[in-house]
Design a protein around this nucleic acid. Structure first.
Length: 556
RNA sequence: GCCCCCGUAGCUCAGCUGGAUAGAGCGAGAGACUUCUAAUCUCUGGGCCGCAGGUUCGAGUCCUGCCGGGGGCGCCA
């Protein structure tokens, strides 16, 4: 019996009480009730607060209602005991046999265990990273590469059809600064005002000169155009390649320029104008964003006739919607949180529902610490810390894991010494080690000729307290995936894996729970039952790590 | 000035969207290796959940106001 099944059992009990006239619920019986793992030993295997939630509606007090439900639950299949405690909690103990069955169910589900169909039919566009190709991918973008990719995997696991998209700004002034910086480097000049410095600039400049030797003899303005075209391509290819090595591949790389060239921006502006959401003032065209909750209205076409940056967003959003994405996610760094108001207003101005058709997730900054001191960065000096710097310091798995294990609202300080360590201090190694341990155990079992018992599996043999702890942890996985999906919080998967790895290690350390027979002892049904449990653990950890894009090594 | 995020053990952070005696890892102290992989486990100590009010059966969680830290507020992108 897993938590979902217990929830259904409790709903059945409530339904029966209503049918018998024992209680009345004016709003009807809830379709599901909260079932949680109590923190405290002695509070049963599972607890529910349903009596406290419904007492007022039922016109009774929580404890009295709890007693009625308890009487019903005690005779339900799979339930071994029920106690009413505290203000009206129901503490439920589950029969060992019913609980042990979870292990076999997990093994049967395999790589699909934890997946769901709750988002089936949803077409979701997740836009993330979207860094301009004016330099190597920085740490903020790296956070989104890890979190965004994990989020996509989680949404897919919950049944959604998801597209990974990278929006590439190749229309505005930022690339002018990049190309002028390349030009300055090639001609041995100082870094221009608002320009970019650093070794990568001179490296790209050298590559451009190698590809286009003629650039040396061109006048500045023509040369800069060559540096722009060739340099941007080189830089962008480098970013794509770095992301690929990081395990992140986008389905669509969308160029802002194409929106202006194709008329998509004009079309969006026409649409908004037709809806009465634009007006002209001081020679500029404005969007009525304040009407939809933004601080103030925004210019979309400047008085000199050139489109403002947000005009690309208008065209882009409309384009996504017309490509059939009912839900558009945009993942932004905290330095862009000021855009949320106008983007949501834009969404509403199109007649869409902010928060539903458009969701914007904000991630806080990332700092690297060495010897407890943050590493300082400067764009101009080219001392920005890149994804490659992080990967070189701690590896891809640790990088992805550390970036995905915190809430987006938390500023991350990465202690390079800790995350480079191959020890149990390092959470990613701790989780991976638990997986490797299951693989070794299964290998040992195979060497002894042990096989999964199949129909001969007796779940009631997983009756030790530590068996129960592990089974309940494994049974949580689908609920963790569900909450990570609903809340768009991949870090829940990482935290869950750490907890589950810990429960597994404690189980492993329990002499009564040995999976392998000792010495020359014959293989018992209990050994076989525990082999199922180890397989189930391996499945859960592997599935969880896969959602985070972190490898699950078989040996370490 | 206005907006967003954070404030929980010495440190780094969770806290399942209002539930029981607030948790984990690290650090500190004491233990367990003829092992199913000790990259592990066991035990001990450690807290006005920033402060003050409010909402209710119940608040780390929701509301208001302060304090402290970080980020953002352009006809830049």
């Amino acid at each position: 019996m897993n938590p979902q099944q217990l929830s259904e059992t409790i709903v059945d009990a409530l339904t029966a009480l209503v049918a018998d006239g024992a209680i009345t619920l004016p709003d009807g019986v809830p379709t599901e009730v909260t079932v949680e793992r109590p923190r405290q030993k002695g509070h049963g295997d599972y607890a529910t607060n349903v009596a406290m939630q419904l007492a007022k509606k039922a016109g009774t007090n929580p404890r009295a209602l709890a007693e009625l439900v308890a009487d019903r639950l005690r005779v339900s299949d799979g339930v071994s005991g029920v106690e009413v405690a505290g203000p009206g909690f129901l503490n439920v103990s589950v029969e060992a046999g019913a609980q042990g069955q979870v292990a076999a169910d997990i093994v049967a589900a395999g790589a699909a265990y934890g997946s769901a169909t709750t988002l089936a039919g949803e077409k979701i566009n997740v836009e993330f990273v979207s860094a301009n190709p004016t330099g190597p991918l920085h740490l903020g973008g790296t956070r989104w590469a890890a979190v965004g990719d994990a989020l996509v995997r989680i949404l897919q696991f919950s049944g959604a059809e998801v597209t990974r998209e990278y929006y590439f700004n190749d229309h505005g002034a930022q690339l002018d600064r990049f190309s002028s910086s390349l030009l300055a480097s090639a001609r041995g000049r100082e870094v221009p005002e608002d320009g970019y410095g650093g070794d990568y600039i001179s490296e790209i400049a050298d590559q451009v000169v190698t590809q286009r030797p003629d650039v040396t003899d061109l006048p500045d303005d023509e040369a800069q155009e060559v540096f722009r075209q060739v340099g941007v391509d080189l830089m962008f290819e480098e970013i794509k390649s770095d992301l690929h090595d990081f395990g992140v591949d986008f389905d669509v790389y969308f160029h802002e320029k194409s929106l202006h060239d194709s008329g998509a921006v004009d079309k969006a502006i026409e649409r908004l104008t037709a809806m009465g959401n634009t007006y002209t003032e001081d020679g500029a065209l404005w969007l009525r964003t304040e009407k939809y909750g933004d601080d103030k209205d925004r210019v979309i076409v400047r008085s000199n006739g050139t489109p403002a940056y947000i005009s690309g967003d208008l065209g882009y959003y409309l384009d996504k919607r017309e490509r059939g994405f009912d839900r558009c996610f945009i993942l932004l760094g905290a330095d862009h949180h000021g855009y949320v108001g106008r983007m949501m207003a834009m969404c509403a101005a199109f007649g869409d529902e902010p928060g539903k058709n458009l969701e914007i997730l904000i991630g806080q900054m990332v700092n690297l610490l060495r010897d407890g001191q943050p590493l300082r960065m400067s764009k101009r000096n080219g001392t920005v810390i890149s994804m490659n710097d992080l990967v070189e310091a701690i590896g891809v798995d640790a990088s992805r894991y550390v970036l995905a294990r915190y809430t987006n609202d938390t500023t991350i300080d990465i202690d390079l010494e800790l995350w480079a360590k191959a020890s149990n201090d390092n959470p990613v190694y701790y989780v991976q080690y638990a997986h490797a341990r299951t693989c070794r155990m299964i290998g040992n079992a195979t060497d002894l000729g042990m096989k999964l018992p199949g129909d001969g599996f007796d779940p009631a043999l997983l009756a030790h307290e530590r068996d129960g702890d592990l089974l309940r942890a494994l049974a949580e996985f689908p609920r963790v995936v569900a909450s990570a999906t609903d809340l768009r919080e991949p870090h829940r998967v990482a935290r869950y894996l750490e907890d589950t790895a810990s429960v597994f290690n404690k189980w492993y350390d329990t002499k009564e729970c040995r999976m392998l027979p000792q010495g020359d002892e014959p293989v018992t049904p209990a050994n076989e039952a525990r082999l199922v449990l180890v397989h189930a653990t391996q499945t859960v950890i592997a599935n969880g790590l896969r959602l985070l894009g972190v490898s699950a090594p078989e040996r370490m």
